[in-house]
C-alpha cells in the first residue's frame, strides 16, 4: 500500500503493508534509526515518537492508521525549545549509561513538559513510568526533567 505521511514536517511517500508498525517504517523504510526497537508490544517506550504532539509507541502504531497526523521523531527534537533544553539537560546531568532508551525517554519527557511545564515529582514518575531504562538512570532522568522545568523553558 502507498501512504503519504508527514514526518518532522516533511511529506514522505511510503510503500508498505498497512499493518507494518510506524517504527519499522521509520527505521528500515526511511532509514531514520533514532527511534529504537525495544519490545514490540508497547511496554518499554524505546520507540516513542510524537503523534500530533502526544507521546506514542511507534512499535504499536500501524502505518495504515497514521493518516494526516503529524509525526515527530528524535531526529527533529532540537527544533523545539523544550526538546533542545532537555537534550542539554541530559548532557549536563550525564544522564545516560548505554543510552539506547534515551531517545524514547526524551520524547516522553518533551511531551510531558509541553502539556505540563511544572510537573511535580509524582507527575514526572507517572508520565515516565512507561519508559524502561535497563541501566536504571531514573534518578538522573527525573533530575534533568526537573531542571528544565525549573528553567521555565516550557513556559516561554
Amino acid at each position: 500500500m502507498a501512504y503519504t505521511v508527514t514526518i518532522n514536517g516533511e511529506t514522505r511517500e511510503i510503500d508498505a503493508p498497512e499493518d507494518m508498525p510506524l517504527l519499522w517504517v521509520l527505521r528500515q523504510e526511511l532509514g531514520m534509526v533514532g527511534t529504537k526497537f525495544g519490545c514490540g508490544i508497547g511496554m518499554c517506550g524505546a520507540c516513542t515518537v510524537h503523534v500530533d504532539g502526544q507521546a506514542t509507541r511507534s512499535c504499536s502504531l500501524p502505518i495504515g492508521s497514521v493518516g494526516d497526523r503529524q509525526i515527530t521523531t528524535i531526529e527533529h527534537l532540537s527544533q523545539s525549545p523544550v526538546g533542545q533544553a532537555l537534550q542539554q539537560a541530559w548532557l549536563d546531568e550525564d544522564v545516560m549509561q548505554c543510552g539506547y532508551c534515551q531517545s524514547g525517554q526524551l520524547m516522553s519527557a518533551t511531551a510531558l513538559l509541553n502539556r505540563n511545564p511544572n510537573p511535580s515529582e509524582t507527575e514526572i514518575n507517572s508520565a515516565m513510568q512507561g519508559n524502561i531504562c535497563r541501566c536504571a538512570c531514573y534518578t538522573r532522568i527525573s533530575r534533568a526533567i526537573a531542571q528544565v522545568a525549573a528553567e521555565g523553558t516550557a513556559n516561554v
Binding site: 526497537f37 521523531t73 548532557l91 550525564d94 543510552g99 531517545s103
Partner: peptide, 23 residues
C-alpha cells in the same frame, strides 16, 4: 574529572550509533 559520555551528544540527537543502527 567528571566527564560526560563521549557519545552522549550523538545519542540525544538520535544519531544511529548502536549495532542495530548499522545501515
Amino acid at each position: 574529572r567528571a566527564i560526560g559520555g563521549i557519545d552522549s551528544p550523538k545519542i540525544v540527537r538520535g544519531e544511529g550509533i548502536f549495532g542495530v543502527d548499522t545501515q
